[in-house]
């Protein structure tokens, strides 16, 4: 059962990532692109967790955690830059 569910899960998330990429390229505004990137990193975490299940390895957990940390900080930095024109005041 898992042999069927895993590829479907991969497929769903890859399509989701492609949709995010569409929004990232299409824009039209800067906040839209930042939002697309934000969603992309969240979907990337889901993809990596699935990959961990497929490879039967727990190492990928740490990669997921790191993406979560870096993604959050970068989204906040970009959002802050857009409101203030500066990141650290």
């Amino acid at each position: 059962m898992l042999e069927i569910a895993l590829p479907i899960g991969f497929g769903l998330i890859v399509v989701a990532l492609v949709l995010n990429l569409y929004r990232l390229l299409r824009g039209p505004t800067l906040p839209d692109r930042a939002l697309a990137l934000d969603t992309m990193y969240i979907n990337a975490i889901a993809l990596i967790v699935l990959y961990g299940i497929a490879n039967d390895s727990k190492l990928y957990f740490e990669a997921g955690m790191l993406i979560a940390l870096i993604g959050f900080v970068s989204t906040v930095a970009v959002a802050k830059y857009m409101t203030r024109g500066d990141i650290i005041e």
Binding site: M1, L2, I4, A5, L6, I8, G9, G11, L12, I13, V15, A16, L17, L19, N20, Y22, R23, T29, P31, D32, L35, A36, T39, I42, N43, A46, L50, I53
Partner: peptide, 25 residues
């Protein structure tokens, strides 16, 4: 496990679908 994977995938896709299709930010 399979059901959770599918539910997760479907909701990630629906969220991204909304991001791609809804009209304003």
């Amino acid at each position: 496990v399979s059901a959770a994977i599918l539910v997760g995938g479907v909701f990630a896709l629906v969220g991204s679908f909304g991001l791609a299709r809804l009209p304003d930010f």
